[in-house]
Design a protein around this nucleic acid. Sequence first.
DNA 1: TGTTACATTGAAAACGGTTTCACAATACTG
DNA 2: CAGTATTGTGAAACCGTTTTCAATGTAACA
Lengths: 331, 331
Amino acid sequence: MSVTIKDVAKAANVSVATVSRVLNKKSNVSEEAIQAVNSAVQALGYSPSFLGRDLRKSETRRILAIIASTEQSFYSDVIRGMEVAAFSQGYDVLIATTHDDPNHEMHLLGMLFSRAVDGAVLLGPKLDAATINALGEKHNIAMCLERLDNCNVLTVTIDNVKAGRDAVNYLIRKGHKKIGLITTLQRSQSSIDREIGYKLALKDNGIPYNEDYVYFGGYETEQGMRGCEYLMNLPSPPTAIFSISDIIAIGAMNYALSKGYRIGKDLIFMGFDNIQYSHMFVPHLSTVEQPCYAQGKLVIEKLIENMKATTPDHNLYTLPHSLVLRESTGD
Amino acid sequence: MSVTIKDVAKAANVSVATVSRVLNKKSNVSEEAIQAVNSAVQALGYSPSFLGRDLRKSETRRILAIIASTEQSFYSDVIRGMEVAAFSQGYDVLIATTHDDPNHEMHLLGMLFSRAVDGAVLLGPKLDAATINALGEKHNIAMCLERLDNCNVLTVTIDNVKAGRDAVNYLIRKGHKKIGLITTLQRSQSSIDREIGYKLALKDNGIPYNEDYVYFGGYETEQGMRGCEYLMNLPSPPTAIFSISDIIAIGAMNYALSKGYRIGKDLIFMGFDNIQYSHMFVPHLSTVEQPCYAQGKLVIEKLIENMKATTPDHNLYTLPHSLVLRESTGD
DNA sequence: TGTTACATTGAAAACGGTTTCACAATACTG
DNA sequence: CAGTATTGTGAAACCGTTTTCAATGTAACA
């Protein structure tokens, strides 16, 4: 049905081995053969099957990036970094989404176990550390953006504890002492780490931790609004709010705006992620930026190294973050 | 190195054929064989290679979704629809990004030509219609969200002409006669169609077309701001603005807000896409919603049908859109 | 008891490439 | 000119599965 290397060989009047050699630009092949094969390929519209090739070579030159969904647009830069690093070494990056379902995440990892891809990068896994550890023993897995406690697979992320601490320290340095935190009930390690950073910053400045100032919600804007509503209705409401994501912060600001608070003066806000919208929303949102592109690039470089290595690198790499200061903190 | 079906066969003391039969749950296998194979699989930690299977079956049960980038978050629902439809028939959906580079798009389509995937869906292709037509002759390709003129591959989209027309007709019905349009210089067919709809709506209401009211920019927020700035500085500025995307509309509103226009009263706005942020931004944006999930679902269903069909379906399917009315149009 | 039907099985072919190996032909060496 | 590299080539092995096909053993039936 489909045209195979045999058909090309026949048409070019050479053996399949020679066709393969021409197609893979091996050196020891005559000029006539090259011509003959190329015109046969042309004439037949031949495209070699990866199915045969991949089986023989036992490699696919494809890497799977497993993400929750394409919704969080800030993944985009990470993916971009991954692609650039991969492509430069002849790999393709494929993306698949789990929609936060650990079973589906496992199903997708099946592509790795079944050699449909050479490696996989988890961006915010839902599987637990023990499971991932076990899989990491036998397969080329890496994590990016999120670390997992007690997980010794290759990981590239930022220091979320320090990032949270830096963010809150900045709010304090702006003269605020009553600092609210809006975080999530569903605990990703990065949320936990940022919360730890929040507490450390308070400690740094001798401010007692007040659990009333911490609101646990979800990742959506609406939850940000609710969080802000809750905080501002406290007997002694905070004058600064740190949110573990920009989406949440935008929701929170939305509420504050609707109640007439003067953002950047009465009340200052700090988000996290520096998503595209954070400087579209008025007032512009101050936020913590993480090096998305660089993290994506690095994780792929390390993962590909691991594929070749005899003793894989299971280290944790942390890249530097930075504060982006805009109107919401009065900057 | 890796454990294969042969190892399992040896351990279970049966032939590879029997192992295969057990793994694929064929009926005619004895209970002892099933037990023996299963425990051997368990003991060896065996996971069958798709490389061998895919080659033998000449199918991968994988479909590639080719998108520009994961940045446009409204793709998310489309992808979700695709996944649900695919998964229910035993297919996986993989995503790859082109970053608007037609060469890279072609490279990714190479996965299709090389049987690494069974089909591909293009969401906003950069390749031209002639090229895609040619490829569509031989391979399972479909398009979603964007149609292409003179392109007869399977396509699922909305009627963007009608959508633009409906949007602008609504603005006119609100009592406005001076309607600005902010669109893009880089012409996707959907932009063109929405612009055609804009003109038709004017015609419907006997309003002469004024090319000064049309601003050609880019897809970013900044371009929306510029577009609004341009329009509002006209001698006789529009009182209603239709943007071909929410991102642009939010930028435009951003400018209008900063200049003190009362949005929803002095000046009304209509966007397109109903992205998540369109109801976060204050004032909430009226917009045209397209059935993302349904489009994704349908395109996969049709594509899978085509894989089995002898005479593939190359039709264009258009799904209904709807207006979502919020504060920006005074609703 | 002999024949037929059926269930279970394994050997081998097939899928479409790449790579090894042996071999012929040619080019270099002394 | 004999001997040795070097170059170009094709036959065949190989990658890991699925599937075909023939064969075996057993049960059912007359």
